[in-house]
């Protein structure tokens, strides 16, 4: 036997077979049903939108993190995930060029300026979406009906708006989202329609059922911290349940709250981004509760119909503070020394 062929490694010599790129890939895969449904509901436009943001994200990552920073990490799938998630937060008829800009912003501002994967304070997809909302407030609140005829052969006209030229044509627009319908007109939407996606909204806001399914899969594979969706949805359900019990006319039902808007997508796929959520379990619970609370506050008393995005961004900002300020018990430390053990 030859010694030269022996490999020296430091322990441990065993490794759990679960790598970061696998996790990211599985998150993307678990979104395939949601994407497929979006294409079914909104037609080929949805497909174009998803491709656009994904290409924008991956391309930006490739250029910025790869070429500029010199640390190519395209293979970790995180840019693809950001692209897909961003698309799912956009309305179906959203102009593609704006979506492309959004994808670039998501990676550049959401990730690159912080130092790349793992260092970003906020969920990059939400950063992209927030910027788009600020820059194009009209386009991002222009909704289309689901299941329109000819959706597989025709692109929604507003998608092809030429950059910086035309404002969105008003006639392409229809359909208020269930949340705005309730907020401004007190119209409730059938929960069944909400859960199965036959309402207007962003690409991924529609079919709550499929999102839950993806989340359950990831939860079982330990690729997602189940405490976050459970914490957020639990908080929202409890708080709105109390309000609904007090005054069912003034306040929407908890079920409608749970299944409408971006809450499901946000709770299952956005808030659970590992990088921008707290590390410790106690931190996770506080984080989830705060996001749930903010969602309810914004939706019911705020000026906007939807508040999931801001709630999660706020939660992201809170995460490092939670990590720093929650003391955690270290084995074998006297209580006197415990307070030095900040994460």
């Amino acid at each position: 036997m030859k010694d030269q062929t022996l490999q020296i490694r430091t322990s441990p010599h065993l490794k759990r077979p679960l790598a970061t790129n696998t996790i990211m890939l599985h998150v993307v895969l678990s979104l395939i049903p949601v994407m497929a449904f979006a294409v079914y509901a909104f037609g080929i436009t949805a497909l174009f939108l998803i491709s656009t943001t994904t290409i924008a994200c991956v391309g930006t990552e490739y250029v910025l993190n790869g070429k500029v920073k010199g640390k190519q990490n395209i293979k970790d799938w995180s840019a693809v995930l950001t692209g897909v998630l961003l698309a799912l937060t956009l309305p179906p008829g959203f102009p593609l060029w704006m979506a492309f800009v959004g994808g670039m912003i998501a990676i550049a501002l959401g990730k690159f300026v912080f130092g790349g994967l793992g260092q970003n304070l906020f969920n990059p997809a939400l950063v992209g979406r927030a910027m788009l909302q600020a820059a194009f407030p009209v386009a991002i609140t222009t909704w289309t009906e689901t299941l329109v005829n000819g959706r597989f052969s025709h692109i929604i006209p507003s998608s092809l708006t030429i950059p910086f030229l035309e404002p969105i044509k008003a006639d392409a627009v229809s359909g208020a989202t269930p949340l705005s319908a309730f907020k401004f007109d007190k119209i409730s939407t059938d929960v069944q329609d909400l859960a199965f996606g036959f309402t207007s909204g962003s690409l991924g806001e529609t079919c709550a059922f499929l999102i839950v399914l993806g989340g359950v899969y990831l939860g079982f594979r330990k690729m997602l911290n189940w405490r976050i969706p459970v914490g957020i949805l639990g908080t929202v359900a409890t708080l709105t349940g109390i309000l609904f019990y007090l005054d069912p006319v003034k306040y929407p039902s908890p079920l409608m709250m749970l299944f409408s808007g971006g809450l499901m997508l946000g709770a299952v796929y956005m808030a659970t981004d590992m990088v921008s959520s707290p590390l410790s379990t106690i931190g996770i619970w506080i984080y989830s509760f705060v996001i749930g609370l903010l969602v309810v506050l914004i939706r019911i008393w705020g000026g906007l119909p939807e508040g999931v995005m801001y709630a999660i961004l706020f939660g992201n900002a809170l995460a490092p503070i939670l990590d720093k300020s929650i003391p955690h018990r270290i084995y074998g430390m006297s209580s006197k020394n415990q307070n030095k053990n900040r994460a």
């Binding site: 490999q7 970061t20 994967l117 793992g118 590390l279 410790s280 084995y331």
Partner: peptide, 23 residues
Amino acid sequence: SLENQSEYACIRCGACLDACPLS
């Protein structure tokens, strides 16, 4: 052998915190 595993950035998944017997 584990030699060809590529290293990624810490994604703050918290798995190591839940593994460390000394917390």
